[in-house]
Simulated scan of single mutants.
Amino acid sequence: MAEKIMDDAVNRHGLTEVVTNAETLAKATPNTGLLKAILSTKHLMNPEVLAMARTIVDKVVRDLMRSLARPITNPFTGRRDPRRRSRQHVAANFDARGTVRANLRHIDPATRRLVIREPLFNTRVRLQQDRWQVVVAVDQSGSMVNSVIHAAVTAAIFTGISAMRTHLIAFDTSVVDLTGQAADPVEVLMRVQLGGGTAINVAMEYAASLLNNPRRSIVVMISDFYEGGHDGPLIATTARLVQDGVRVLCLGALDADGRSMHNQVTAQSLAAVGAHVAVMTPTSSRPGSRR
């Protein structure tokens, strides 16, 4: 009962302050709601509670990585070739249909069960492996906590793909380059500071400075598109990147209930200069887009 009350306090009523207490935190069930509460209040935690919180963050992040890793990496690892066999027994390459056909003669007469003596695996046709440079720039203002979580996890998965060189930056009114920690999403999340103002153009200018080959580069900007000042410089920087051949993807998050959290006027202006603009929940597989 105590755990249920704790979960309701955090996930339904937003009483995030309860997670700063060691006794109540110990009874909590690790989930994304609790993770958001921890990220919002970690600056208030004493060392003992912070250590407990880090363990919870690690558990939730591992679960997210398991669910997101395959759909993110599949486009970069190639497709299975049913005509070619592989001696490497990799679960993702298991040929179930071919294995059944090849082992039909091994049906056990007594149990009438198929005995698999020779599992079959396919090779993969490699996709184009010219290396791309990807910069993920995530707004760390307080309303973007869902996006910060998923950006950290996605960047960690990207860093394991040999075809990509990934940078991760977080921004409010200034930019923090987290590329050195991008492979460890727990470390990234424990370092971000949610809240404060927003200077999106500062982040986009920094992202532009990192690019070596614009035509083999992708800049992913995750924000609510509420620029701290006039959005003219942001639109101009985005237009310049697009003209140079950079693929610019602007993601504006919705909240968990699908409510809009982004500036639609700025989003339309970004799309008008050639950026790909999409609006989605963190787990949505079919975003609504403007280009």
Rank of each mutant, 00 (worst) to 15 (best):
A91S: 13
K4I: 12
R247F: 11
F76K: 14
T20S: 04
A110P: 05
S174G: 03
R54S: 08
G33A: 11
L15Y: 10
D172T: 06
H106M: 07
D224V: 05
N74W: 14
R291S: 14
E227V: 01
C250Q: 06
T32I: 11
V188E: 05
L249W: 06
N213L: 12
G195H: 05
I38Y: 01
F121C: 09
W132Y: 15
W132P: 04
M280Y: 01
I56A: 11
H167S: 12
P71T: 00
A53Q: 00
I169W: 03
F225N: 02
A155H: 05
L241Q: 08
E48C: 09
M45T: 07
S174N: 06
A152K: 00
M280G: 04
Q243Y: 06
F94S: 09
A37F: 01
L34S: 02
R191V: 07
P287K: 06
T41Y: 04
L25R: 00
V90N: 13
N201F: 13
A22N: 07
A51H: 02
V57R: 01
I157A: 09
A256W: 08
G228R: 02
A151C: 11
A53M: 00
M280A: 14
V273G: 03
M6C: 12
Q88L: 14
S40P: 03
V10I: 15
